[in-house]
């Protein structure tokens, strides 16, 4: 299968990238690893006249610990999944990056691309919501920072304008315990649904801070605000987890489809959620 015809650009620096984006605006798209966009182009679900590959721009591939954990938009998912800095400071991201698709896709795909594509089945949006990450966005008129909670608007739709570039992912909630619980019917496939949990405890074992994000339960990744608020200050046990799950059900949309009925899905999601909370709470102690 071939994509529709397009012009291909490889700018060498941010300034020429901005110039190209300003010129082509809606008729262009940034290509990072291409693991989401190339399949869409091949199936002709979409057709983009101008593809701008950013892999030749230096300084976009970094994983650094300053005050926050900072990740560049060209950091490959496999690099994040193998990074000691990420493993030590952000176990949720480390775990989730290693569970994205399969090894070949992780070698090519980027965390930044996963976020900007905003496919509701993508793993990173929910992880970023659980981490409360900030995104530095650059365009020809300057830089701004957008929090992940304001970033994901709808399926394939984000707060990015057509000339915007994601230039940095900042994670300030570091030193937490966290894990990504992904339920798939095939090892390398998209998640049927997944739960990202990031947690920090007080010395008396009550929850100090918690972030929960969900993949593929709505038209975009979901941050479970009400559940987070409910769990803060509590010690997590079976009863509290089940109460938290009933609050979660109000925030998501599960439908019958070929993967199962709504009831069946709820049952599995409940198991994943309750066990996940228990596991991360246990790790945090």
């Amino acid at each position: 299968m071939y994509p529709d015809k397009f012009q291909y650009f490889t700018p060498g620096d941010i300034a020429s990238l901005e110039e190209l984006l300003d010129k082509y605006r809606d008729d262009s798209k940034i290509l990072a690893g291409g693991q989401s966009i190339i399949p869409l182009l091949k199936m002709r679900f979409t057709s983009i006249p101008n593809i701008i590959d950013i892999s030749n721009i230096k300084g976009l591939n970094f994983i650094e610990l300053n005050d926050d954990l900072e990740i560049g938009p060209m950091a490959r998912t496999a690099e994040v999944a193998a990074s000691n800095i990420v493993a030590m400071n952000c176990p949720l991201l480390f775990d989730a990056a290693g569970k994205v698709a399969d090894p070949q896709v992780r070698n090519m795909g980027t965390v930044g691309g996963d976020i900007c594509e905003a496919d509701p089945r993508n793993d990173m949006p929910a992880v970023m919501l659980a981490l409360n990450a900030d995104f530095e966005i650059t365009n020809s008129s300057g830089k701004r920072t957008v929090n992940s909670t304001e970033f994901f608007k709808d399926a394939y739709t984000t707060a990015l304008d057509s000339n915007d570039i994601l230039t940095k992912i900042s994670i300030k909630n570091i030193g937490y315990h966290g894990k990504y619980f992904k339920f798939t019917t095939m090892a390398s496939d998209f998640a049927l649904f997944a739960v990202a949990i990031n947690m920090k405890l007080n010395s008396d074992e009550t929850v100090k801070d918690i972030g929960i994000g969900l993949t593929n339960v709505s038209s975009t990744a979901v941050k479970a605000n009400e559940v987070e608020a409910y769990l803060k200050g509590k010690k997590i046990d079976e009863k509290i987890s089940e109460e938290a799950f009933s609050k979660l059900l109000n925030m998501i949309e599960l439908d019958d489809d070929y993967n199962g009925t709504k009831e069946e899905k709820q049952k599995i999601l409940k198991k994943i959620f309750v066990n996940g909370l228990k596991e991360v709470y246990g790790d945090s102690k």
Partner: peptide, 24 residues
């Protein structure tokens, strides 16, 4: 990009060559 029959190494790392542009 599901089956992996097209797997090749790019700079020593495995990639699915049906999901990589030759330009990349």
């Amino acid at each position: 990009s599901n089956c992996g029959a097209c797997t090749v190494l790019m700079d020593g790392k495995s990639v699915k060559s049906c999901t990589v542009l030759a330009m990349q």
